[in-house]
């Protein structure tokens, strides 16, 4: 479904991503793991068209998208829930969600999806007229995921959904991801919390300073000594 080939992304002279390749198959949950500065967020931002790669190719559903502007990438069915959630704090929940559907023009479908998101996160329905900035971190994260879902994506990219959340809320988010997968949405997940991400990943890649150093299924990596030492904090 998504194929990244020899992707190089640079900020000026500094290369943040140094030629990585990976694939995401239809219906999978795929994780990119790594420490701060490994290039995970840069990779996601490049896929969604917010950054231009220096070289390399990105293919989505058989079409090359690495030169497609960001607003058109969304229309092709690829949604991006950015790092730090970036909800619109002063807009209401409903306005936030509707902005997620900005690229769509089918009003009836948007209304249906709005209900779907409300069914998924009941708290959002209750607080639909409240400014999103008054929410807790977990609620904001739900809103961010819901907002990304509003474009009815086939591939959903989530950048650190567990950031700053309580363990309980994190579980909630992770089970939501699994629920979305069972609805047929393919998910590309960037996480620092390796243990949680690996548990639900069909496939995972470990990034270190802009390069993929390890890859395998979630289970394989969970059992890998290097992963256990570096990311799961075990000896």
């Amino acid at each position: 479904m998504l194929e990244v080939k020899d992707l190089v992304v640079a900020y000026g002279k500094v290369k943040a991503v140094k030629g990585i390749s990976f694939t995401v198959e239809q219906g999978q949950v795929v994780s990119l793991l790594g420490t701060n500065g490994a290039g995970k967020t840069t990779t996601l931002r490049t896929i969604s068209g917010l950054l231009r790669p220096e070289s390399g190719e990105i293919w989505f559903e058989g079409e090359r998208i690495d030169r497609v502007p960001a607003h058109k990438v969304v229309m092709r069915g690829l949604a991006h829930s950015p790092e730090g959630r970036r909800i619109f704090p002063r807009l209401t929940v409903e306005d936030n969600l509707l902005l997620g559907a900005f690229a769509r023009k089918d009003a009836a479908g948007v209304a249906t999806d709005l209900e779907r998101v409300y069914d998924l996160f009941e708290i959002l329905r209750e607080r639909r007229t409240q400014p999103a900035g008054t929410f807790s971190g977990g609620e904001q994260q739900m809103l961010a995921i819901g907002r990304a879902m509003m474009s009815r994506p086939r591939l959903l990219m989530l950048d650190e959904p567990s950031m700053g959340l309580s363990p309980l809320m994190m579980q909630r988010i992770m089970s939501t991801i699994r629920a979305l997968q069972s609805e047929g949405v393919t998910i590309l997940l960037v996480e620092q919390n390796a243990a949680a991400a690996l548990k639900l990943s069909d496939r995972a890649y470990v990034l270190e300073v802009g390069q993929i150093t390890l890859d395998g299924t979630g289970e394989q990596l969970l059992g890998d000594d290097r992963v256990r030492r570096a990311y799961l904090g075990e000896d």
Binding site: S48, L50, P69, A70, H71, V73, V74, M75, H80, S81, P82, R86, I87, F88, P89, R90, L91, D95, L98, L99, G100, F102, A103, R147, S151
Partner: peptide
């Protein structure tokens, strides 16, 4: 609605599929 999003957070608006420049 797109303008509101741009005013609030340009980067997030772009990620939502708002044609910011246009």
């Amino acid at each position: 609605r797109g303008w509101v999003a741009i005013r609030e957070d340009e980067k997030a608006a772009e990620a939502m599929g708002v044609n910011v420049f246009g």
